[in-house]
Design a protein around this nucleic acid. Structure first.
Lengths: 91, 91
DNA sequence: AATCTAATTAGATGGTTAGCTAAATAGAAA
DNA sequence: TTTCTATTTAGCTAACCATCTAATTAGATT
């Protein structure tokens, strides 16, 4: 399991948050995602990797394409992490 | 206003998230906060600064002490930012 | 005004990140 | 099996981040 640190670290870059926002509407290939960015594919690929390490996305091969999927449950974990900071607790 | 990038960047470091968690229970001086960490005060001070830049905290002087306050509304903004990534939208 | 306390800013260093181009891999198609 | 397409990995560089110690600032106390 990936650890909250890795997840927040992954969320800290705007390109990576945009990738997640795009994947929210459904799985997409690396190439299809790349069309939404002005940066090189290798650079984007490194961002994919950080999202994978954080388990915010998963990958599935389809022929020559790699299809990325959003992993909602880990994103919800991050949500809970912030929620923890806003809620008063008694311990 | 601080921008969502600055906020997520500020949230990406575990020390800074712990600072916020401590402030959740009420305002605290820099020194009181420092007792909860094993890192040097100057380093901690840099972390305070990033939280201030993100407007996640505000500061008020009380004699020689600087008292840090959690700014809940900005934290809620971050919450909304992640929520945006989880919710299906039609636009 | 000299000194003490609380905290910051300055300056230096080691490690990490984001970006690039070029090279390599994996699968599909000719 | 050669070639094409999609994507990644490798290798590099410039910029940035976290940390430290030393010096400075701000206010309180004597």
């Amino acid at each position: 399991m990936a650890g909250i640190n890795t997840v927040f670290e992954a969320l800290s870059h705007p390109v990576r948050r945009k990738i997640l926002a795009l994947l929210r509407q459904g799985p997409m290939s690396a190439g299809a995602l790349a069309e939404h960015f002005a940066i090189s594919r290798p650079t984007l690929s490194v961002h994919f990797n950080k999202l994978k390490e954080a388990e915010l996305v998963s990958v599935e091969r389809q022929g020559t394409s790699l299809i990325y999927h959003l992993n909602m449950s880990v994103l919800e974990g991050a949500l809970a992490g912030i929620l923890d900071l806003t809620e008063q607790s008694n311990d």
